[in-house]
Design a protein around this nucleic acid. Structure first.
Lengths: 236, 236
DNA sequence: TCCTACTGTGACCATTTGTTACATTTTGCT
DNA sequence: AGCAAAATGTAACAAATGGTCACAGTAGGA
């Protein structure tokens, strides 16, 4: 059931829409003031917000702007009586679409679906690419790494290295594999640069006092990310 | 070569625009009266009609209405006075877009292209195409960008650059790709202009203090737009 | 015409990455 | 155990890569 927030001071319209949209699989929460609407909009994660322009408490445009400052939730603007100026400004401020009042509920439904279709498609690119193990967290989308909540700055090679290790925590990753994935070239027995990068990575990760070292060497084979706490991401 | 019909009584403006647009691959036919404009509009199939509102012979709105009666050709309205009334009425009658005079030829070009793009594609609505991530919002229809609700002014190259990155937030885009899409040429290893544009773009985006920089460098490969607040990753 | 904004280029600098050399550890052998 | 060879760790330096300043060229607008 998709959660919809309806911000409109017309109580009767609200209940009518809640009823209508309810029949099509939407759950509508309605508030009738701009300020409370804004609060609600940022508090909860709605699939879509229907926002009227003429509002008591806080103007609809203002609400729109402030929501946009905090979130990229879908917003469909409802403009009071044919005021097309509103449409224009609304679109430029960042509404996903607009609908002039009075509107046909059917058309509203169609537009809502269009917006949701678009955004669900786009969402596929926003995969939550988090790799975790043992207090380590690597976010490939944000390209950040933190250890026990503390941010760690890594260079690109170090990042790729940790990413490869974190892909299968506890498993040994061969030098050959690492060379290919991290350095993008074949491994040569006398190439020491991998060792260097491991060394640098270790220095940046805390708990590098010989024992408890997160990155363990497997002599003759490769490296492995030590896993102490059982909580990890089963990826294979 | 796209055929454009320009209906405007300002002869000088007409020749200036014909010249300007000609340089961008449009062929502009100009007429200076409403009635002759109407005739021309229905006689031939134009890709787009630029229609001034204040016209001798026949009022611009009237022309618009009558053209619409016979054809669904693209129409961009040029409003003489900045009076919003014009805009409103124009859109309600059925113009695809409007542009208040005096306008920047560049903006006209951008809007013309937007209309043509829309009409050649499937949709013919006024829906904006919004690309978002992490407080950033890029509106390809209005050609605007804002960050956390605040408008940001970008040059064409910067806009194209951000657009390319925003197409796949959190993913690395190679230099080769960017060079082709943004600069329209092949990437040459010693070409530093991409770097410059990235640099300039970063400066305009807030949060450019090394860390949490929205535009991340992936050494040896390209760039990536960092996504921190994945809309799909609720922390609780 | 001048003025302005945008784009591209060369130069210079900081950071990252690779290499060499040497220290240290491990392993195998006697 | 003692020793040598092999593997790994790391410091120091060199090379590559990217960031940005400053300037030049260009195009558009006044």
């Amino acid at each position: 059931m998709e959660e919809i927030l309806l911000i409109d001071d017309d109580v009767e319209l609200c209940s009518m829409l809640a009823d209508y949209l309810g029949r099509y699989g939407f759950h509508v929460s309605a508030v009738h003031r701009g300020d409370t609407g804004l609060k609600e909009a940022v508090k909860k994660q709605y699939a879509l917000i229907l926002l009227d322009v003429m509002l008591p408490g806080l103007d609809g445009f203002e609400v729109l702007k402030r929501i946009r400052g905090a979130s990229s939730v879908n917003i469909l603007l409802l403009t009071a009586r044919g005021e097309d100026v509103d449409r224009i400004v609304g679109l430029e401020i960042g509404a996903d679409d607009y609908l002039p009042k009075p509107f046909n509920p059917r058309e509203l439904l169609a537009r809502m679906r269009a917006i949701l279709r678009r955004s669900s498609g786009a969402e596929a690119t926003l995969e939550p690419t988090l790799l975790r193990a043992d207090g380590l967290e690597l976010n490939t989308a944000a390209r950040t790494v933190s250890q026990n909540g503390k941010r760690i700055e890594l260079t690109d090679v170090e990042f790729a290295l940790l990413e490869s290790l974190l892909h299968s925590p506890g498993k040994v990753v061969t030098r050959e594999e690492l060379a290919e994935k991290v350095l993008g070239r074949e491994f040569h027995p006398f190439d020491r640069s991998l060792d260097m990068h491991i060394s640098r990575l270790r220095r940046k990760l805390s708990g590098s006092g010989t024992e408890d070292d997160l990155v363990k060497t497997v002599r003759g084979t490769g490296y492995q990310l030590a896993v102490h706490s059982g909580a990890s991401t089963p990826k294979d």
